[in-house]
Design a protein around this nucleic acid. Structure first.
Lengths: 206, 206
DNA sequence: CTTAGATTCAAACGGCCGTTTGATTCGCCT
DNA sequence: AGGCGAATCAAACGGCCGTTTGAATCTAAG
């Protein structure tokens, strides 16, 4: 009987995701990762080449899907005649919300994403910018159309603030604790909804 | 001629601040810290007892002053008759802004603070909550008075989002690059000003 | 000057780190 | 059945980690 139907590769990625979320990239060792994944220590370097590459693969596995979904929802926005700020914000936030609800690893990954910002690592930033920067550009263009009163610089300031608030809130970094009478799913959906209303008001500010 | 007029203790704290900001708590080693501070390796354990305690002291040194200044500005708010949201937000943001402009270490510390959120470390969170939680409570009370239309839960949601956006923006985590024709000081002041306007609009949202 | 306490120092401690090796096992194809 | 590449394994590599030691060096009071 095989209790571990997932491949060695997948089990490593899953364990790395959770441990990186909890202890950071430097703080989580490959020994912890491989022990948690119940695979041999050498498997990481066999399948990924190095810890650095493993980190990149942890991002790639989730971001490919996340950004495809964002692009898809944004395309739906473009067709709408009565498009509101809230719709575009939803197209950006909802995929992250869905990811965080999909499974335990998805929730962990949202925290990993937030850690990536804090790390300020140049290689990691370039990797993210090279692979997923175009999606952010597409969103910025749609926001620009909806907020014609803002000049380009002002718009970029505000989008930067929005992405910060979003990253922070979805990663559950705040001090706000989930009430015990609210399910994890309900809690996250409320977070997203509050976030969108707050961000829309901030973007519209005089 | 003594080129290093600061005490061993202070030089360790300064070097630790900068290296923790750049590489994180796990990523910056005591060997890097003591080399950068030009002190003996053993000095850290002599003066602070452990790396954990050093981390706490890095926080204490700056937060005591930061929160005293916040409390002071908040007290001035209480006396004003025509108090606006922006004034209270300013009382919260300005001390962080002043700190980040005071010296290189201050700017580094603002990033260290943001890292503390990302670390999600239980001991660190308790330390921050125990020592500085009362200041946040005072601000929350004043915000509650200015936003009577929001119930308590709604208010806490929004303040949580505000503190996230603030932490993220002041730590320069965004992708927005400072324009070369704007000084570092001017850049940070604009950040604070944009932040306050954005947050005020978000807090006022219907 | 002497002495006691505070501080600094080089060196070493055991332990964990990321990575590599070379042998062994597995799964599949002819 | 035999062979071959892919995958797994235990073991070891050099190196850096946080911490401790005990001697050397300061500093200031008796």
């Amino acid at each position: 009987m095989d209790l571990t139907p997932f491949s060695t590769r997948q089990r490593i990625l899953g364990a790395a995701e959770e441990l990186f979320a909890r202890h950071g990239f430097a703080g989580a060792s490959l020994r912890q990762v491989t022990a948690s994944a119940k695979v041999n220590l050498a498997a990481v370097n066999y399948h990924f080449g190095s810890k650095e590459n493993l980190i990149e693969e942890v991002f790639r596995r989730r971001l490919d899907e996340l950004n495809a979904r964002r692009t898809e929802l944004l395309a739906q926005c473009r067709d709408r005649a009565d498009l509101g700020l809230e719709d575009v914000l939803d197209a950006f936030v909802r995929p992250a919300l869905e990811l965080s609800l999909s499974d335990a690893g998805g929730a962990a990954f949202v925290r990993v994403l937030a850690r990536a910002y804090a790390e300020h690592d140049e290689r990691l930033r370039r990797f993210l910018s090279d692979n997923y920067g175009h999606v952010l550009k597409e969103f910025a263009a749609v926001f620009a159309r909806l907020l014609p009163q803002l000049d380009k610089e002002e718009l970029y300031w505000r989008l930067d603030i929005v992405s910060g608030a979003l990253t922070y809130a979805m990663a559950d970094f705040g001090v706000l604790k989930r009430r015990s009478d609210v399910s994890e799913q309900e809690h996250r959906e409320r977070t997203a909804s509050h976030l969108i209303r707050f961000a829309a008001a901030g973007l519209r500010a005089a």
